[in-house]
Write a protein that binds this DNA or RNA. Sequence first.
RNA 1: GCCCACGUAGCUCAGUAGGUAGAGCACUUCCUUGGUAAGGAAGAGGUUCACCGGUUCGAUCCCGGUCGUGGGCUCCA
Length: 636
Amino acid sequence: MKPSVEIHINGEKKVYPAGVTPRDILRDNGIEDSRDMVAADLNGHAVDLSTPLTESGPLNFISVRSAKGLEILRHSTSHVMAQAVQELFPDVKITIGPAVEEGFYYDFDTPRPFTPEDLELIESRMREIVKGELPFRRIVMPRNEAIGFFQEKSETYKVELLDQIESEEVSLYAQGGFTDLCRGPHIPDTGYIRAFKLTKLAGAYWRGDERNPMLQRVYGTAFPSHEDLKHYLHVLEEAKKRDHRKLGRELDLFSVSDDVGPGLVIWHPKGALLRHLIEEFERREHLKRGYQFVIGPQILKKDLWERSGHFDNYREQMYFTTVDGVDYGIKPMNCLAHMQVYKSKIRSYRELPLRFFELGTVLRHEKSGVLHGLLRVRQFTQDDAHILCTPEQLNDEIIGIVKFVRDVMEIFGFDYTMELSTRPEKSIGTDEDWDRATTALEKALQDLGAAYEINEGDGAFYGPKIDIKLKDALSRSWQCATIQCDFTLPERFDLTYVDSDGERKRPVMIHRVVLGAIERFLGVLVEHYAGAFPLWLSPAQAVVMTITERQNPYAREVVERLKAHGVRVEVDLRNEKIGFKIREARGQKIPYMVIIGDKEMESGTIAIRKRGEDSTAGMPVETFLKQFDQEVENRS
RNA sequence: GCCCACGUAGCUCAGUAGGUAGAGCACUUCCUUGGUAAGGAAGAGGUUCACCGGUUCGAUCCCGGUCGUGGGCUCCA
């Protein structure tokens, strides 16, 4: 009897001869797919439609409209791109080319970097390959044979990858004359690729290590249909309109100047006001939670940075200066001063936990290539605190901080992700301390039932950390809040407290920020709200505007009343038509327009036009103020 | 720091087989006093096209370098 397999499909169990392919089953079951099914899933692992099946189990087809299917489509498109590149530039060596969140890329080692013109060339060659409907063929061979195959082709990067693969058998995929080492699965043939576009050109280090040679990375994206691609490009255009660098200029919040220097932010009146509002909010929230304000100096003696380990581990990021022949380090972090506050007297266990808070301005020498608007700068102010507590209090303190962060993120309506970062290569402290700290952080996350990912080797040099990341308009992640455990600095600075048994013991230190850097947070915040800040945060909350100059005296009266009530109000009495004034106020995204004409003047009212609405409502000033206060109160 | 691209008026951008620059908006003045997304006219505005050097009779334009910006990589709040 021929061996057979039992396949569960559409809620039925069907028996097929072994070696049947998913494509056969697709046809057999009359599934209408109009080439939407790109692969299949058998027993939880993805297979090609052409893979002969030798196992029984549930089979599901993977549609190109599913996340997994889209990933397969994009991955296959990256192979097609590599094929096009090799056909056009035979001396290019291939490396790796995965699907990523918004598309795919492929890294090439090329003697001459690609130009934008090359991209067009590659794209048109890809279109030919797609038109050719070349089948993707899966080839399984022993690892050694594959090594020989790629050696022959001088594909040294592939050989290097194969050298590190453990299994004895590997799979290759070939379409046309192009063969790549690959796990698969892939779409059945290149004709399945419908809409794609090469998007950007970049440099990238081989295996992400800056000691390795730099490769040429070509990014692209692919979609099930041209409409989907068009939609994606449209969304991208819209996202660019939210860019905080663009809005920062348009709303006159801040600037950076060549004359001043890169990565140094100049806050204009409205931006400075926004910052002030956020900082006030922060101070209140910290006081509520038992933090004490402290303030440290901007420069501290170099000896202190040597003692802390910053000099050894963080020197390249620091600025130094010399005063009266003594070397000082300009602070890149606030922890040293906070420890000095702790050390200023003998501490009792009764005082702990101590929570020292500072809106601390720090300077870090960031590499020139990483600076980015407000999101990556060289001088920034952290909402920084250092908590000193007993080891027993550690868990509760961490839980308190995570809750703090959650509360704040909710107020702003942010989605965020949490990551637990463990010990990096360059670090100080004992393994035992690192384990204790890492366990404490993880336990707090688990106690709270928070979702998190583990980031191996990404901790600070003095301890592991929990990072909270927010996304900008283009969905790039930025670290904002961070909670870092530290057993090392208390040791190095010999911090102690007297315990109930009269013994001197070592406190634990937690470094933490909630918003992170105010600059970065505001950058992300601008993009989050697309510049339309909620009332409580708007630098200008209302603008009073008149129809004609006749109403100016009355308008001034209204402005005074609003100001007296604490409304941040602007006034537009210019000799312009009302349509023009409204247009400008809309552009500035001011929450309330207060419009005054003869009608309002005569009835002693004001006409309110709310941001986002096209109509006005007439009311007495008092009525407006009531509504206004309510909205500020709700932070809506 | 590395790779690629870019750098013209406050902003958005045009431009010149290489012959010393233009538009719109914004700004100033005047006219207009107009009820919900741009009323009209005139004017001023670039140490001459980021900076430095080279090629050339002549460079904003070609070449090299520096600085800055953007997109990535590495790194990070």
